[in-house]
Amino acid sequence: MSKTLLSLILATACAAATASDTPAPFDATAVLEQQKQIRGDIDAGRGNYGKLNAATRQELRSRQDRLSKLLDGHRYEDLSAGDREQAHQDLSWIQSAGADKVEDRVTCERVRAIGSNRVERVCKSASQRRDEQKNRVDPKLDTPGVRN
């Protein structure tokens, strides 16, 4: 199956689960296949899952292992209500971990240093830019010897 189709299956299952009180059934075989592809992306450092930090990767792997134990050799209908709920929680967490978060997205801009004609490319994540903006000192407000 293609990654797009598997993502669609997971997204549909998660969206249906949040839209109603009873989670929507999913194809256990397709979910297990998708988890194998995600594991491959993690190991190869590809895509959004490949960019995760070590702690998140470890949590993702443990959730995948738990999901594999629940679904291996079973159909959705064979699972108990508690196992179904656990599977939906793990799937939802795995999907959100791999989502392309705006905070993690890196944007680049061309910056010319003061007193120079040389242009540099500066790349920062949204959280880095926000922290930099928060810590920036306004020279008009922070002039030594001037009382505000």
Results as ranks from 00 to 15, higher is better:
Gly50Glu: 03
Lys51Ala: 10
Leu70Ser: 12
Arg57Asn: 04
Asp72Ile: 07
Leu52Gly: 05
Arg66Asp: 10
Asn53Gln: 06
Gln58Ile: 04
Asp72Pro: 00
Leu60Gly: 02
Ser80Met: 09
Leu52Trp: 02
Leu79Thr: 10
Asp65Tyr: 04
Asn53Pro: 04
Ala55His: 03
Arg84Leu: 11
Leu70Met: 15
Asp65His: 07
Asn48Glu: 00
Arg75Ala: 15
Lys69Cys: 03
Ser80Gly: 13
Arg57His: 07
Gln64Asp: 10
Leu70Phe: 14
Leu67Tyr: 02
Arg75Phe: 15
Asn53Thr: 00
Glu85Trp: 09
Arg61Ser: 06
Gln64Trp: 05
Gly50Val: 03
Glu77Asn: 00
Gln64Tyr: 06
Glu59Met: 03
Gln58Lys: 09
Gln64Gly: 07
Asn48Ala: 02
Ala81Asn: 14
Thr56Pro: 00
Leu70Tyr: 11
Ser62Arg: 14
Leu79Cys: 08
Tyr49Phe: 10
Ala55Trp: 01
Arg66Glu: 14
Thr56Asn: 00
Arg66Ser: 08
Asp65Trp: 05
His74Phe: 04
Leu70Cys: 09
Gly73His: 11
Glu85His: 14
Ala81Asp: 13
Arg75Val: 12
Leu52Ser: 00
Ala54Lys: 03
Ser62Pro: 01
Arg75Leu: 15
Asp72Ala: 14
Arg57Cys: 04
Tyr49Trp: 07
